[in-house]
């Protein structure tokens, strides 16, 4: 592989990078919160469980070791016991999925296996922001659930209230943390770190207020669900090809 351009192209790189930092490479130089309504599309059939998203997220967002803003689960479901799947997520799939040790997994003709990426659902009616006693976590006007680290008490009520296990307390900062949907990236026209790093486009950042966003076409053509719909959280992580056994 050739690396001859590095010095000569310094100028071009600087221009490209500056445009990122200035906000949005192409379209919107001024980001307007009211013009967007962010969501995430996940195609379960495309996930290969490589863990790229988990690693990318942890670097992009300085996620403390042992906690996860996104993770991947491996499901094994026997058709005799749809409500009792065998699930694992070794270290959140940060190192991918080693094959299950012999005798550990399910076997048989009716066993199916798949990976399910998880992240904050950025719920429109989020139970976590509802319970925050001081307004330290909130949904932005563009539909992203964020935590104000300088205001969070560390009471952990939001962690208890999230049905999906997406929140944790940062061990050093003692405040709640969670997926920000890479708010520092998407407001500059970039996609999230997990989407950027996903080799199979299993994850796709989506803007429901953008009429040209491919999500509209995708939602029309696919049967799409959210996790734990009975929780009525207005979840905006939309899953295509999701098996009913997934919790």
């Amino acid at each position: 592989m050739n690396r001859r351009f590095f010095i000569t192209l310094t100028g071009a790189a600087a221009v490209a990078w500056d445009s990122v930092l200035a906000g949005a490479p192409e379209s919107s130089p001024n980001y307007k919160v009211t013009d967007h309504w962010w969501a995430m599309l996940i195609d379960v059939d495309k996930c290969i469980g490589c863990g790229n998203c988990v690693r990318a997220c942890s670097v992009e967002n300085d996620v403390p070791e042992g906690f996860f803003r996104t993770w991947v689960e491996r499901y094994q479901v026997d058709d005799m016991h749809l409500d009792d799947p065998l699930v694992d997520s070794p270290n959140g799939a940060k190192n991918g999925f080693p094959p299950l040790p012999p005798g550990k997994g399910l076997t048989g003709p009716g066993v199916k296996e798949f990976f399910v990426p998880k992240l904050c659902n950025h719920c429109a009616d989020s139970p976590c922001t509802q319970v925050c006693p001081v307004g330290a976590t909130f949904t932005t006007p563009d539909g992203v659930v964020l935590v104000d680290e300088t205001y969070c008490l560390g009471c952990r009520y939001c962690v208890e209230a999230c049905p999906y296990g997406c929140r944790f307390i940062h061990p050093e900062k003692n405040v709640a943390q969670k997926c920000t949907l890479c708010y520092h990236r998407i407001t500059k026209g970039l996609t999230t770190a997990c989407c950027e790093a996903c080799p199979t486009s299993s994850r796709m950042l989506a803007d429901l207020k953008n009429p040209n966003d491919p999500i509209h076409e995708f939602m029309k053509k696919h049967s799409v669900q959210v996790l734990k719909p009975h929780m009525a959280t207005g979840a905006k992580a939309f899953y295509a090809n999701l098996d009913g056994s997934v919790r």
Binding site: W17, V20, N61, H184, R185, K188, L190, E196
Partner: peptide
């Protein structure tokens, strides 16, 4: 929104 970016895109 002003947090540092690590993946250039």
């Amino acid at each position: 929104a002003a947090l540092p970016i690590r993946h250039a895109g």
